[in-house]
Simulated assay, not measured.
Amino acid sequence: MTEPALREGRSAPSPECPPPHPSPRTPSLVLPPGSCDAHCHILGPAEVFPYSPQRTFTPLDAPKEQLAALHAHLGLSRAVVVQSSCNGSDHRVLCDALAAGGGRLRGVALIGETTTRAEIEALHSAGVRGFRLNFLPHLRTAPTRQEIDSVLERVDGLDWVAQLHVTGSGVADCESLIRSLPGRVVIDHLARVDLADGPHSPALRVLRTLLDTGDVWLKVSGVDRVSRQGPPYADAVALAASFVAHAPERVVWGTDYPHVNIKGAAPDDGLLVDLLTDIAPDPGLLRRLMVDNPTDLYDFPPDQHMEQT
Results as ranks from 00 to 15, higher is better:
L210G: 14
D212L: 10
T213G: 04
T213Q: 08
T213L: 02
D215G: 14
D215F: 13
D215S: 14
D215I: 13
V216N: 12
W217R: 00
W217H: 13
W217G: 12
W217D: 08
W217P: 12
L218Q: 01
K219P: 01
S221M: 00
G222V: 11
V223F: 13
V223I: 10
D224W: 05
R225K: 15
R225W: 08
V226G: 05
V226S: 03
V226R: 04
V226D: 04
S227T: 03
S227R: 07
S227L: 02
R228S: 11
P231R: 10
P232C: 12
P232G: 13
A234S: 12
D235M: 06
A236F: 02
A236S: 07
A236R: 00
V237S: 15
V237T: 14
V237P: 09
V237L: 00
A238E: 01
A238D: 15
A238H: 10
L239D: 05
L239W: 00
L239Q: 12
L239E: 03
A240V: 05
A240L: 02
A241W: 13
A241E: 04
A241S: 14
S242I: 06
S242Q: 02
F243I: 15
A245I: 10
A245S: 15
H246L: 01
H246W: 12
H246T: 02
H246I: 06
A247L: 11
P248W: 01
P248M: 09
P248H: 04
E249F: 05
V252R: 07
V252Y: 02
G254F: 05
G254K: 05
T255N: 07
D256Q: 09
P258R: 05
P258V: 03
P258M: 12
P258W: 13
H259P: 11
H259N: 10
V260R: 01
N261I: 06
N261H: 14
I262M: 08
K263T: 15
G264T: 11
G264N: 07
G264I: 07
A265K: 09
A265V: 03
A266T: 05
A266Y: 07
A266F: 15
P267E: 06
P267V: 04
D268S: 09
D268Q: 09
D268I: 07
D269G: 10
D269E: 10
D269F: 10
D269W: 00
L271V: 11
L271R: 00
D274P: 04
L276N: 11
L276G: 01
T277Y: 07
T277N: 02
D278I: 03
D278F: 08
I279V: 15
P281I: 09
P281F: 09
D282Q: 08
